[in-house]
Simulated scan of single mutants.
Amino acid sequence: MIEQELKMIPAREPPKMAVGVIAWLRGNLFTGPLGTAATLLIIYGLILTVPPLVQWLFLDATWFGASSQACNREGACWAFITARLDQFIYGFYPSEEYWRPNLFFAQLAVLVGWLSIKSTPWKKWVLGYSLVIMPVVSWFLLYGDIFGLAKVDTHQWGGLMLTLLLALCGMIASLPFGVLLALGRRSDMPVIRSLCTAYIELWRGVPLITVLFMASVMLPLFMPVEVSFDKLLRAMIGIIMFQSAYMAEVVRGGLQAIPKGQFEAFDSLGLSYWQGMIMIVLPQAMRLVIPGVVNTFIALFKDTSLVLVIGLFDLLAIIQAGLNDPKWLGNSIEGYLFAGFVFWIFCFGMSKYSQRLEQQLHQGH
């Protein structure tokens, strides 16, 4: 009798209104009169805009053709993109040498995939290769004039290849330079602190377009007459110097967020300044500034389109040049949509990777 009284009652299922689709709708879309009205208004707007947009983008679109005359004006003329896709990707790179940019793209994809997958081994070695060796290998691969490779001058580079190359070199070089500037600005040595502060404030106060003009026009004036400085290298130097100032302020914010006790801890252990910074302070600071660093990288990736002003044809510039072709007049919407989509894909990928990196490195407090 007692055993029957102590018998546990089996757990019951929760009410249907508390779980499942109905609960999600009530908790996210129909939270009250105001939330319900906003949801219905958004649904009505989507009904008005999405079907015509899908009709124009896909159903009535023309995907292939030799000119805009082949396009159906009721839909998008994606024939402009497909007909000039090689130029949008490689710029004016010789078609018989396309295997070299393709190898560059493949190398980049493998390295990004290797570093993104959590279970892959030798990450430190792969990261070291990506930061130190890969830019040099990519330059000689694309430029040639070594190991029997045909020389391809940088004025023939363009499109997505040039955009990625500028962005990668800017990201790889500006981060360590920004870290050094941030440490210098917080230094106890007045001369170092003043120089780093002056550098950061100077470059942050000048628009990037002005920096590119100065790098293209003024930098050769400080070089010997017999030295010919490549225009692409000048643009890279300008972008790196500009972005490193912004990166320094991002890193400085992370350093200031570290409690003073961490600095006192490595002093008490007898570690030198650089040992304490590299092993104790910087790992914590860099984990805190991941969103700011990635935000700066995204801004850098989009700002590469400004190299048009010094005669370099990145993805956006090569699309604008294609729009001036008499065979493809009137297709600016499709061209800019394609450019925007490509930029969005890369920026969204960097954003998602940074969120994943934050979760992996989150150690709690």
Rank of each mutant, 00 (worst) to 15 (best):
G261H: 08
L271W: 12
L149R: 15
L308F: 07
Q55E: 14
K151S: 10
N324M: 08
V54P: 03
S272W: 09
F58V: 15
C71M: 06
Q4E: 14
T154C: 11
P207D: 09
T120E: 01
I345S: 00
P224N: 12
N295Q: 14
E201T: 11
V179Y: 00
K352P: 01
Q55F: 08
D325Y: 09
G91M: 03
L165C: 04
V112Q: 05
Q275E: 11
G238M: 08
Q4P: 02
R252A: 15
P51W: 08
G178T: 02
K327E: 10
A76S: 11
V206T: 12
S228T: 13
L337T: 05
V309C: 04
L183V: 11
I81C: 12
M8W: 03
R185L: 05
Q262Y: 14
M279L: 08
L160G: 03
N102V: 00
Q69K: 13
M1K: 05
V211H: 09
Q256P: 00
W125S: 02
D188R: 12
F242I: 05
A198H: 06
G144D: 06
M286L: 15
K124V: 03
I89K: 00
S244H: 01
A317D: 04
D86H: 07
E249P: 04
F80H: 15
C347S: 15
A37S: 14
L149I: 05
P15H: 13
C169K: 00
E96Y: 05
V126M: 11
L25Y: 06
G45P: 03
G340H: 10
G340F: 10
I298W: 05
L308C: 01
C169R: 00
A299W: 04
L142A: 07
L85D: 02
L29Q: 09
Q107K: 11
R100F: 09
A265E: 10
F341W: 07
L282F: 02
P176Q: 03
F346P: 08
A265L: 14
T39Y: 08
K118W: 06
V112D: 05
T31Q: 12
S68P: 00
L181W: 06
A265P: 11
M8H: 06
S116A: 15
S68H: 02
I209T: 13
S351M: 01
V342Y: 04
Y98Q: 09
I9Y: 05
L29A: 10
N324F: 04
A61N: 07
D188E: 12
L183R: 10
T49L: 13
H155Y: 13
G276W: 11
S305N: 10
D303N: 15
L221G: 02
P176G: 05
Y273L: 10
Q243G: 05
M171W: 06
P283R: 01
S187T: 02
F30L: 13
L195G: 02
R185V: 13
V251S: 01
K260H: 06
W328D: 03
Q275Y: 00
V136H: 07
A248N: 11
F222Y: 12
S116Y: 13
G364C: 09
M286R: 10
D267A: 12
Q55N: 13
C347I: 09
I333W: 08
Y129A: 14
P224T: 10
F313A: 14
L233T: 13
Y44S: 10
I2V: 10
T210Y: 10
F147E: 09
F301M: 14
W56Q: 01
I192F: 04
I89M: 03
G178A: 02
S138C: 07
S351L: 00
